[in-house]
Simulated scan of single mutants.
Amino acid sequence: MQLRLSICISTLNRAAFIGETLDTIVAQLRDDIELLVVDGASKDNTAEIVERYATADSRVRYIRLPINSGVDQDYDIAVSHARGEYCWLMTDDDLLKPGAIDRVMVMLDGNVELVVVNTEVRTVDFGGILSSALVATDRNLEYAPEDADRLFVDTALALSFIGCVVIKRNFWLARDRVAYYGSLFIHVGVIFQSQTPCTRVIAEPLITIRYGNAMWTPRGFEIWMFKWPSLVWSFDSVSTMAKACISAREPWRQLRKLWLYRSIGGYALGEYDRYLAECPMPGYKRLISRAIAMVPPGLANAMSSLYCRLFARHARMNIYDLSRSPYASSISRAVARSAGY
Rank of each mutant, 00 (worst) to 15 (best):
Y86D: 03
K168P: 00
T217D: 08
I129M: 06
Y181H: 15
P251R: 08
A244T: 02
I18M: 02
G265N: 06
S42N: 14
L258Q: 02
N13K: 13
A47N: 04
M215R: 11
T91L: 15
L276T: 06
I246P: 00
L5V: 13
N140W: 00
G110L: 13
T208Q: 11
G19Q: 03
C164S: 13
H81N: 12
M294R: 05
M294V: 07
A16T: 07
F185V: 04
Y272G: 07
D31G: 11
R333N: 05
P282W: 09
E142T: 13
L134Q: 06
K227C: 05
F185K: 03
R316Q: 09
I209D: 01
A82L: 14
A300H: 03
E146R: 15
S330L: 13
C308D: 05
P280S: 14
L306M: 09
P297Q: 15
A47F: 03
V26E: 07
G220R: 12
D321F: 10
S42W: 12
E204W: 09
W88Q: 06
P218I: 10
L141I: 08
L276K: 01
M317F: 03
L299W: 11
T91M: 12
V115W: 07
L3H: 02
L306R: 04
R177H: 11
A214N: 08
G40L: 03
L95Y: 04
S132C: 10
E20S: 08
A27D: 07
M1V: 13
L35P: 00
I223H: 00
E120K: 11
Y275V: 00
F235C: 12
W216T: 14
R309M: 04
S6W: 03
A41L: 13
C198L: 14
V116E: 05
E120W: 02
R253D: 07
A315M: 13
F226G: 00
A27G: 08
S247P: 00
I63D: 07
I49R: 02
L5Y: 03
V124R: 13
Y327I: 05
L269A: 07
V60L: 11
R337D: 04
N13D: 15
